[in-house]
Design a protein around this nucleic acid. Structure first.
Lengths: 167, 167
DNA sequence: GACAATTAGTCAAGTACACTTTACTAATCA
DNA sequence: TGATTAGTAAAGTGTACTTGACTAATTGTC
């Protein structure tokens, strides 16, 4: 019997050093991937703690697309590039957890506007928590370098988007 | 009947502009995420074309962990922080597609060393294709800024890793 | 103003991927 | 020889979707 004792410990101790060594020598793409994953996980954990439910990446990916005045399901689906049903499922969970609510749009009674429970305030707080992580990283890296990183990433995104769509 | 005509077109036309606008104003985390995904997709597509099979992200994630002289399944699993079985499944597919092969390790006949078919040459070519993408991005961004981005990302990774494991 | 077509959203089921757990064989080490 | 280790086999799980079929509100057309 081997008992397969990988899990947490192995993942965070045995694996981590190996991973770090490889990542440092890896391609920019690899480093990019790893940074993105870690930043994401950290933010996810904090927002989850704040909200009191274990959110998943798909949930937080939804948040930045929800406008202060509320947004329709269909609009969210378009913005995210997925089906209405996919968004519907995520929204359904968030509503059941008391994070979001759906209110009938008086301008079109078929539609409902989705917004944060507690309105703008709650939204702001949520974004603030996400911002906290970035604030700490900015501090660790130095404000100047952090801003530089931001600019470079936005430029990179511009290049990447260009190759795919326009032009 | 609505026919649900999202798919490709909507995703790349309707969605893309909305997405880009949001991403540019988004947090560093968001931009990071999006860049990583796009770089990854691009590399994946090119390697797939070269190899002649549609590889998935999990496959290419495996590649940088395979050493020139071949690597054991268990070692790969440790490096990647997943179970041996998970790696086993990916390797199995890649072997069936003729990308990798398993050869018995003469030093320990329980073990097999996993390496690229065609040996170092094939590995080099594969990595070269991945490098191509980065080369083009470097050109688009300017070599100086690209290197700067690289340095900043590695530093960011250092900060992120530190928070999680050591200390 | 009636009615067909469209649109917003829901319901239910299915799928792809990237894993995991449990259970095993075969080779090696102590 | 008994315990460990390398790897395999098979089935199960969680996430993030998709497709197809449907209801209800609305809009455009005659």
């Amino acid at each position: 019997m081997e008992k397969q004792e990988k899990t947490k410990l192995a993942k965070e101790e045995t694996g981590a050093r190996e991973q770090l060594e490889h990542a440092k020598r890896g391609s920019v793409g690899q480093v990019l991937m790893r940074c993105a994953r870690l930043v994401n996980e950290e933010g996810l954990e904090r927002v989850s703690k704040k909200v009191g439910v274990r959110l998943r990446p798909a949930h937080t990916a939804l948040f930045p697309h929800i406008d202060l005045e509320g947004t329709r399901l269909t609009t969210l689906a378009e913005r995210m590039g997925v089906s209405k049903q996919a968004v519907g499922q995520l929204v359904e969970e968030l509503v059941s957890w008391g994070v979001l609510e759906r209110v009938v749009d008086p301008e079109d009674r078929r539609a409902r506007k989705i917004h944060f429970v507690g309105g703008a305030q709650a939204l702001m707080e949520g974004l603030q928590v996400l911002g906290e992580v970035e604030g700490e990283l900015a501090e660790a890296l130095g404000e100047e370098d952090w801003q530089h990183l931001r600019v470079l990433l936005v430029r990179l995104l511009g290049v990447l988007e260009h190759r795919e769509i326009s032009h």
